Amino acid sequence: ATNIVGKVKWYNSTKNFGFIEQDNGGKDVFVHKSAVDAAGLHSLEEGQDVIFDLEEKQGKAYAVNLRIK
């Protein structure tokens, strides 16, 4: 899925991951530091509006192509 809109539920910059809540009511999506770095960001803030693509690997969904809304 592409261009999914959501809000950062939480992001832990020490542990380098967090979760994004989808605006469409879907399951929360894992986001890793690598996606944050690829977006040219240092971190994510709770409540921040983002747009992302959804990829699945080994049955787990995660956010890629992250951008600030």
Results as ranks from 00 to 15, higher is better:
Lys57Trp: 08
Gln48Ser: 10
Ser43Glu: 10
Arg67Met: 06
Glu45Pro: 13
Asp37Cys: 04
Ala1Gly: 09
Trp10Gln: 03
Lys33Thr: 05
Lys9Phe: 02
Lys33Ile: 06
Glu45Tyr: 07
Asp37Thr: 09
His42Asp: 12
Val29Gly: 01
Trp10Val: 05
Ile68Cys: 04
Gly47His: 12
Tyr62Thr: 06
Asp37Phe: 13
Phe30Asn: 01
Val8Gly: 01
Ser13Leu: 15
Tyr11Thr: 02
Gly18Phe: 04
Leu66Met: 05
Val64Asp: 04
Lys9Gly: 03
Gln58Trp: 10
Gly59His: 15
Glu21Cys: 04
Asp28His: 10
Gly26Met: 15
Tyr11Arg: 01
Asp23Tyr: 15
Ser43Ala: 12
Glu56Ala: 09
Lys27Pro: 07
Asn3Asp: 14
Lys33Pro: 02
Thr2Cys: 04
Ala63Cys: 04
Tyr62Leu: 06
Tyr62Arg: 10
Val31Trp: 02
Lys9Asp: 01
Ser43Gly: 14
Leu41Thr: 05
Gln58Tyr: 13
Lys27Gln: 15
Val64Gln: 06
Asn12Arg: 14
Glu45Asp: 12
Arg67Phe: 05
Ser34Asn: 14
Ala35Gly: 04
Gln58Lys: 12
Asp28Ser: 06
Gly40Tyr: 08
Leu41Gln: 10
Glu45Arg: 12
Val31Glu: 00
Asp49Asn: 15
Gly26Asn: 10
Gly6Met: 01
Thr2Pro: 11
Gly26His: 10
Ile4Gly: 05
Leu44Met: 05
Thr2Tyr: 10
Ile51His: 08
Lys9Leu: 11
Val36Asn: 02
Leu54Val: 15
Thr14Ile: 09
Val29Thr: 07
Val5Pro: 06
Val31Ile: 08
Leu41Val: 11
Ala63Pro: 01
Tyr62Cys: 04
Asp23Pro: 15
Arg67Asp: 05
Leu54Gln: 15
Val8Tyr: 01
Asp37Ala: 14
Leu41Gly: 04
Asp53Ile: 04
Asp53Tyr: 04
Val64Ser: 09
Val64Tyr: 13
Asn12Pro: 02
Asn3Phe: 05
Lys60Asp: 04
Gly18Asn: 01
Phe30Gly: 02
Gln22Thr: 11
Leu54Asp: 01
Ala35His: 07
Thr14Phe: 11
Asn3Ser: 10
Ala35Cys: 04
Val31Cys: 04
Ala63Phe: 00
Gly18Gln: 01
Asn16Lys: 15
Phe19Gln: 02
Tyr62His: 09
Val29Leu: 05
Lys7Trp: 07
Arg67Trp: 05
Gly47Ser: 09
Ser43Leu: 15
Val36Tyr: 03
Thr2Val: 08
Gly47Met: 09
Gly40Val: 05
Gln58Glu: 13
Ala39Ile: 07
Ala61Leu: 15
Ser34Gln: 14
Lys69Gly: 08
Lys7Arg: 11
Lys57Cys: 04
Asp53Trp: 05
Gly59Ser: 11
Gln22Tyr: 13
Arg67His: 06
Ile51Phe: 11
Val36Arg: 02
Lys15Pro: 01
Asp53Pro: 00
Ala35Met: 09
Lys27Leu: 12
Ser43Met: 15
Ile51Arg: 09
Lys15Tyr: 14
His42Met: 09
Asp53His: 05
Lys9Ser: 05
Ala61Pro: 13
Glu46Phe: 14
Asp28Cys: 04
Asp23Glu: 11
Gly59Asn: 12
Tyr62Ala: 12
Ile68Arg: 09
Asp23Ile: 11
Thr14Ala: 15
Lys60Val: 11
Ala39Met: 10
Lys60Ala: 14
Val31Ser: 01
Ala61Ile: 15
Tyr62Pro: 01
Asp53Thr: 07
Val50Asn: 00
Gly40Pro: 02
Val5Ser: 14
Lys15His: 10
Asn24Asp: 14
Ala1Val: 07
Lys9Gln: 03
Asp53Phe: 03
Leu44Lys: 01
Gly25Lys: 13
Gly6Glu: 00
His32Val: 03
Lys27Gly: 13
Phe52Ile: 06
Phe30Asp: 01
His32Arg: 04
Lys57Leu: 07
Lys69Met: 11
Gly25Gln: 10
Glu21Thr: 15
Gln48Tyr: 07
Glu21Phe: 15
Gly47Phe: 09
Glu55Ser: 11
Leu54Trp: 10
Ala39Gly: 11
Gly47Tyr: 07
Gln48Met: 09
Val36His: 02
Asn24Arg: 13
Gly18Arg: 00
Leu54Glu: 05
Val64Asn: 07
Glu45Met: 12
Gly6Asp: 00
Leu54Asn: 05
Ala1Ser: 07
Leu66Val: 14
Ser43Thr: 08
Trp10Cys: 04
Asn24Ile: 11
Leu41Asn: 04
Gly59Met: 11
Leu44Cys: 02
Asp23His: 12
Glu55Asn: 14
Arg67Tyr: 06
Asn65Ser: 08
Ile51Trp: 06
Gly25Cys: 04
Ser34Arg: 07
Lys9Tyr: 02
Gly25Ser: 13
Lys9Ala: 05
Lys69His: 12
Val29Phe: 06
Thr2Gln: 12
Asn24Gly: 13
Val64Ala: 10
Asn24Ala: 14
Arg67Gly: 03
Leu66Gln: 00
Lys33Asn: 05
Lys57Gln: 15
Ser34Glu: 08
Tyr62Val: 05
Ala61Glu: 10
Ile20Lys: 00
Asp53Gly: 04
Val50Leu: 11
Val31His: 00
Lys9Asn: 03
Leu54Arg: 13
Gly47Asp: 14
Asp37Ser: 12
Glu56Lys: 09
Ser13Met: 09
Ala39Cys: 03
Asp37Glu: 13
Val5Gly: 14
Glu55Leu: 07
Leu66Thr: 01
Arg67Ser: 06
Gly59Phe: 12
Lys15Leu: 11
Asp53Glu: 04
Ser43Asp: 09
Val8Pro: 01
Phe30Trp: 05
Ile20Gln: 00
Val8Arg: 00
Gln58Asp: 10
Ile51Thr: 12
Phe19Arg: 02
Gly18Ala: 02
Glu46Gln: 14
Leu66Glu: 00
Val5Phe: 11
Arg67Val: 08
